[in-house]
Each structure stands twice: as structure tokens, then as C-alpha cells.
Design a protein around this nucleic acid. Structure first.
Lengths: 341, 341
DNA sequence: TTGTAAGCGTTATCAA
DNA sequence: TTGATAACGCTTACAA
């Protein structure tokens, strides 16, 4: 008796079934119509007997088809990314792929490291959840020539499949909601715009809606996610600048909304009562904090699922045209966007 | 010019450097002391020239060392799991391993599926974040004979490395805190205890502390995570049963705390004011909901990191003794556990 | 110090 | 309908 019984190989199965490896391989690869009933039965039994499972390593080496997909995530602590990952993972399972997970932690050189890694494992495609990823990093990704799908982010000057939210529509709905609820001064708050298209598109739609409401004052501010003091200052300034008016803030993503909530607590500003608040991305605690926070919920799971489907389509044939697939968000109205009147 | 330049192989490098594959292999595997300076330089150049990266598939096939670790997570939407994953991921990076991610979604047959999958990719070890995983599933895992580390969960009658929280200590600290703050009736609330050791250990410590405080009434309740009505009923009943006393609830984990907060909102019970509340696991929104929720924070990242270190140690030599490594939690006191007096 | 050749577990080619 | 046999890209005896 072996201490660690090494896995059975295809040769073992062939031997046990008194046949050759070729037939076993055929059996495994759906070419069963070529086999006699008798032989098929013998192979089946041998496989069950030996608990044989083909080695994906050997398969990958020989056929080049590793059934591996690389998932590059810029920040896995972002709940948005996790939700998306769930969708990706479900799709993988359905389609027989497995995920190699890479968290770049927003560090540029990690990204480089992982790209090489994925390549060395010969992944068949990659999904990039680039939320917050720097431009330079993305542009290096494109050079990998692998089937690739971007989530929630476009690279200028590079045609690549993209799956994400319909930013214009969502921001429009959100802005209209604030307008309809009688707010008179609006602040669009985001991390530095850079060339991050999601931020820019949301801001643009925000402005477009307000263009036809000249009586509503509005501005935008860019604050780094981890610069608490700057955030406090920005909020305070906005609040006092429009004293006497009904004020509201629209926050460009969930991570930032969390920081805004903390900042408001620090500077003693209550959302709902003192100031309106609406944030992109649903938060599990949105209903629990004070009068609740109005959010724009993204269909994160579906976005992930669709992204994986797309990358598989591209793996199967790289000739398909580059597409951008967008999903609609859903406004979830809570107390933070109901002014007292 | 090729459309899709197939990756350079070790033979290509050998040829470009006018030498044999062996030398290149030696160069790659740290046996450089065996090579002449001249040859070393030529190889180095060829590698850079061709952008050569060794195929992990071929490597894995030949040596059996795939440098792959399987990560089995019962529920990836649980923030605890995600935090732990971060630590695991960081450790992987440092030690040159890569994660194959498997989310079993709390479904038994998925678990089976993934176990076979991991085996077919010849992972060298697995880390199981079994929070909420059923016993039967875990016991099947143990049969895989792979180096394996369990996070936050023990399997009765099976010796396996475990990394997790010092449950007894943590529950003791938490319970003492409630006692010291003058609460007179305590409820320990968890999902069904089953044979989940974390829940049992926490409850046991809770009882032990209260054993020496006979004037404090206490009980425990088990409610399924997704059974909202039952939760409402449980909370209501407890609240009214001890009317007139200072009441507090201790919740066994973060996912449950979220549900409790929602339930309290539904039945119009305010933590802090009406009833004390303390939950295991830190929540990003803990400070934002009402007067804040007191939590017992686990060193999640470190737990993940330690788990991966352990699995690697076991990969390197399976003879090491089975250990259980526990970390201390940290009580973060907020308004929910300060009675009004 | 360097190179040759065998073999890891598959699949693909070709012949029977 | 079957089965040898040669790759896939790498590591590793073993030779030179």
C-alpha cells in the first residue's frame, strides 16, 4: 500500500481496460461513437475503478487549452469587485473554466508580475476588473494579445470588449431624482477624474441634466479616497457656500460613499436632514445608516457573468467584432434624498 | 510576421544562445554556479530577446510541482472570507504560489465538483475557508490527502491544521464587556449551532463567564441567517421577556449582525438606546449605524496569511505535526453597548 | 562545464 | 473500430 497513491494515468486506465491510450482518450473526448459498446463499457469501468481524472496539466501542455481564465482585480476589498467576481465565477463553473485569481492591490508592478504569471500558466483569456487601475497599467495589458474583457473601464485608443454599467443613463436617472426632489445646489463628488471614463461619463450626464435647469447650482469636486481631511473640507465648504438652499451630494462610487458617510459623521452633518446624499453602488448597510442612503445599484453579478461569456466567445473565435455591453442600473430611493422641505 | 506569435520555448532560447536546453534549464533553476560567465550571458540575452517565460504547465507536468494552491470558499459574499482571502493572496505572492479560486456557494455538490477540479490541476495544497460549510462536506475534503489547512473550523475526529480566532478568549472579553457595562439580561444569538466549533466555543465561553454572575439572566437562540420572520420574533420575545431589565444581545458573526440590525430596524428597536448589541466580526459600517455597533474584530488578514504559510510548510514536508494556530481578537467599543443607565 | 536523451500524461497522426 | 507512436515544453539522469 502506497502512502500517497499517485493519481491514476490514462495508461493505467488503458491497461486496466485491456486497450490502448488512444481509445481511452477518445472516450474522454466525446468521440464515443467511434467505440464499440464492449470497449466503452470496459473503459467506463476502469475509470470508475481507478477514480481516474485526466490531468489538466498534461492536457494544457498538449492541446494548449488549459481552460484557465485569469482574473485581474485592482482592489479586491471593493465590494463591487467581489460581487462581479461572483458572477464571473458562476459563469466559469457553467462553462468549465477555472479562475486564476490575481489581486494587484492597486500596485503597478504587481500588475506586471501577474501578467507574466498568467501567461506562464497559459491562461486562455483574462478578465480585468480595472476599477481604479491606472491607465499605464491597462495599456500594458492590451499588449498581451490574449482574449481580454474589461469591466467597467475603457482604454482610449484601444479596441477591447467592455462590459459595464450604462453610466450616462444611470447618472441621468440619479440626477433627475435629485432635481425632482427639489434640491437647489448639487455637488458631484468623485475621486480624481483622470481619464477614468466611468467617472467622466457620470459627471457629464450630471451636467447635461442640469444644463436645462439653470436655477439649480452645481459643481463637482475630486478628492482622493484616503485623504480624509480634504474630504471634510470639501463637504464643509460646499455646505456653507450654499447656505439657505437645499443641498445634495452625488457620489460617484460606493467606496467613496463610505468615506463621505464617515466624513459627514466627523463634521456633524446629517444626510437626509442637513444635506441630500445619493451614491453609486448599492451598500449592504445603506438602509441602516440614519434615514438610509439612496443608492444607484449596479447589476454586478450580471456584469461579471456577461464579461466571462464574452471572453469565452472571444476564445472560441477571435474574429468577432469588439463590443461594448452596458447594463442599466436601478435607483434605490431611501431617506437621504428626501429633503425636509 | 505571425498573427499570434506563439510563445518562445526553452528550445528556442537554447538555440538562440547556441547551447542546449539543459543549460537554459539550469540557468532558470538557480544552478547558475555551474555555468560559465560567457554562457550565462548568452542565455540571459536570449531570454530577454525572446521574452521567454517558462511554461508552468510543462513544469508542473514534469516535476509535479505546479505551484498552485486551491482556495475553497463556502461563501465569497461574506466579507470575512474576502478579508481572509486578501491575506492568503499576499502570502501566495510572496511565496511564489498562485490561487485557484473556488466558491462553493454553500452548495454541497459544487464542493465535490471543485475538489475534483483542483485535483485535476494538481494543486499542491488547499486552503479551506469553511465558514458555514456542512460537516459532511468537510469530511469528504479530508479524504483528498492533499496538504490542507482549515480556516476557522475544526473537523471532529480528524487531525488537520487549523488557523483561526481564539474563540474562547474573544467571547470572554466580549461577554465581560457587557457584564461590566451593567447589562442584566443577555442573549447569545447565532445560526444553528450544529457541530460548528466556532459557534459552540463562543457560546461556551459566554456561559462560563456568566456562570459566576448568577444575577445576570442569559439564554441563547439559534436562527437561520435567511429566516427574517424568525429573527424578528426571537428579538421581540427576548426584549419583552426581560422588560424592565437592561438587555443586550451578542451576535456570533458579522453576517448575522447585519441581519440583526435589519430586524431591529423592522421591529423598531434601537441598539444602544433600547437594547445593547455586540457582534463578532468588524463591519465597515459599524460606526455609521445609529450610535455605532460594538464589534469584536478578527485579525482576518493575518489569519489568511498564516493559513497559507502553514499549507506551504506542509507541502514542503508532510511530516510536521498538526497544529492549531489561534489569533486574538480586538474589542472595538461603540455606542451600541453603552446602556443609558 | 556542457550536452544528449528519456519521460511526465495527454492528444493527434497515421496505419492496421 | 482500434492502437502504436510522436509530439507538447520542461527537468533530470547520465555522459562527455
Amino acid at each position: 500500500m502506497k502512502i500517497r497513491p499517485s493519481r491514476a494515468t490514462i495508461s493505467d486506465v488503458a491497461h486496466a481496460a485491456r486497450t490502448g491510450k488512444t481509445s481511452v482518450s477518445r472516450y474522454l473526448n466525446g468521440e464515443q461513437h467511434l467505440l464499440s459498446a464492449d470497449l466503452k463499457a470496459r473503459i467506463e469501468e476502469a475509470i470508475a475503478d481507478l477514480q481516474y481524472r485526466p490531468s489538466q496539466m498534461a492536457r494544457g501542455l498538449k492541446r494548449g487549452r488549459t481552460r484557465l481564465i485569469g482574473l485581474i482585480i485592482a482592489d479586491i476589498t471593493n465590494p463591487y469587485s467581489v460581487d462581479v467576481m461572483c458572477g464571473i465565477e458562476a459563469a466559469c463553473r457553467e462553462r468549465g473554466f477555472t479562475l486564476l485569481m490575481c489581486n494587484t492591490n492597486n500596485e503597478v508592478d504587481l500588475e506586471q508580475h501577474y501578467l507574466q504569471l498568467l501567461s506562464s500558466y497559459q491562461v486562455e483569456g483574462i478578465v480585468v476588473n480595472a476599477v481604479g487601475m491606472r491607465e499605464e497599467v491597462l495599456s500594458r495589458l492590451q499588449q498581451s494579445l490574449l482574449p481580454m474583457v474589461l469591466i467597467d473601464r475603457k482604454i482610449p485608443d484601444f479596441a477591447c470588449d467592455v462590459v459595464g454599467l450604462n453610466n450616462a443613463e444611470a447618472a441621468e436617472v440619479a440626477t433627475r431624482h435629485l432635481v425632482d426632489n427639489g434640491y437647489e445646489a448639487l455637488l458631484f463628488l468623485s475621486e480624481p477624474l483622470g481619464s477614468v471614463n466611468t467617472r467622466r461619463e457620470r459627471l457629464q450626464a450630471f451636467r447635461q441634466v442640469l444644463a436645462v435647469h439653470p436655477h439649480i447650482q452645481h459643481e463637482n469636486a475630486e478628492v482622493s479616497l484616503h485623504h480624509a481631511a480634504a474630504l471634510d473640507e470639501t463637504l464643509n465648504a460646499f455646505y456653507h457656500r450654499y447656505a439657505g438652499k437645499r443641498r445634495a451630494i452625488m457620489v460617484a462610487n460606493g467606496a467613496m460613499t463610505l468615506q463621505v458617510a464617515r466624513a459627514m459623521q466627523r463634521i456633524n452633518l446629517r444626510w437626509g436632514d442637513d444635506i441630500g446624499l445619493l451614491g453609486f453602488d448599492e451598500l449592504e448597510w445603506a438602509a441602516l445608516a440614519g434615514p438610509g442612503i439612496t443608492t444607484l445599484k449596479q447589476p454586478t453579478w450580471q456584469i461579471g457573468y456577461a464579461a466571462l461569456e464574452r471572453v469565452i466567445a472571444r476564445i472560441e473565435s477571435n474574429d468577432i467584432p469588439v463590443t461594448e455591453r452596458v447594463f442599466s442600473g436601478e435607483l434605490i430611493i431611501r431617506g437621504s434624498s428626501q429633503p425636509l422641505r
